[in-house]
Simulated scan of single mutants.
Amino acid sequence: MSKGGTAMAGDVLVEVDGQRLRLSNLDKVLYPADGFTKGEVINYYSRVAPVLLPHFVDRPVTFRRYPDGVDKMGFFEKNASRHAPDWVRTVTIDTPGSTTGAESLDFAILRDLASMVWAANLAGLELHIPQWTVGPRGGRQHPDRLVFDLDPGAPATIVECCEVALRLREVLAEDGLTAVAKTSGSKGMQLYAAVTTSSETRTSDYAKTLAERLEKELPKLVVSRMAKNLRPRKVFIDWSQNNPNKTTVAPYSLRARPRPTVSTPLTWDEVAACRSADDLVFTADDVLDRVADHGDLFAPLLAGKAPKIPR
């Protein structure tokens, strides 16, 4: 990323992969507890882009934006057409039942470093993506990812999530599926597996079946139903994140927490060794070091033809 001249006070013109962008308010603190600035957000996303971008190929992005910092009210934004320069790919996706009342919205596809820097400059701290991709003409494909969102009900923590994750990994392996794990960047974690399916609802149905199986197997630890009164001291396996109309926070995305924590891919040894809620908390700087050491721990999701979900 090469720097150009200054356009106005606080604005900097840069060239990223041949595209010119105006970056603004780089010194603005977006994470007051850590003094982490907008410039540091842009720097993080620029440096993590080599491992992040492959997971965004052909996936429409929902941004969670915090232009005034994480201690102020943020907002979700799906419609990118108001902000996107013409070199950012957008796709029109049907959104029936949208809270905006719109029948369709124009979503951004972050396919290169320039697009990622553009998004970071909007203070799009959190990046959320679906478990499906769009085709060359923008049509929605069948799901190619299976996800389980593990949400601990206090006083349970990510420690209990790890216990559930290890068992869930075993069950998925029995069905020929390879699981990878990441922190949510908040209090829980997620498991993913690459899959092939010819149905929009198959991943959701399968995930629900496994969640209910683990609830029966581990009734003191697992709950598969969303009712809040059932969740204290247990791990809720949220299988509904496989609904094609839902998104999940992307790997390597920042979170809007007091500190610049990241939804961080994990090794299974780390999952097995977790003994404290603090063991698996990673900030932007930590993640850049981890990528240097481990590469992309989510790379298995990108490797070749994925197995079919068993019947």
Results as ranks from 00 to 15, higher is better:
E103T: 07
F75P: 07
A211E: 00
R47Q: 14
D279A: 12
A9T: 13
K38P: 05
Q19L: 01
L13Y: 06
V41I: 14
N243G: 02
P244E: 01
H55T: 05
K187P: 05
D286K: 02
G74Y: 10
A250R: 00
W87A: 01
T100K: 03
L168V: 07
G188V: 07
V12Q: 13
V291R: 10
V117C: 03
L254V: 06
S199P: 03
G139S: 15
P50V: 04
R137A: 14
A80I: 05
Y192V: 06
V117H: 03
E270S: 08
K228C: 00
E200P: 00
M8I: 01
Q241L: 04
D238S: 09
G185S: 02
W132S: 06
V70F: 09
P155D: 01
G18D: 10
V262C: 04
K228D: 14
D86G: 06
N245L: 14
K3P: 00
S199G: 08
T37S: 15
D175R: 15
G35N: 10
V29W: 10
L297E: 10
D149R: 02
L21K: 11
V29S: 07
D293Y: 12
K72H: 15
L191K: 08
S184R: 04
A9D: 14
D106C: 04
K234G: 03
S199L: 10
A49R: 11
A80Y: 04
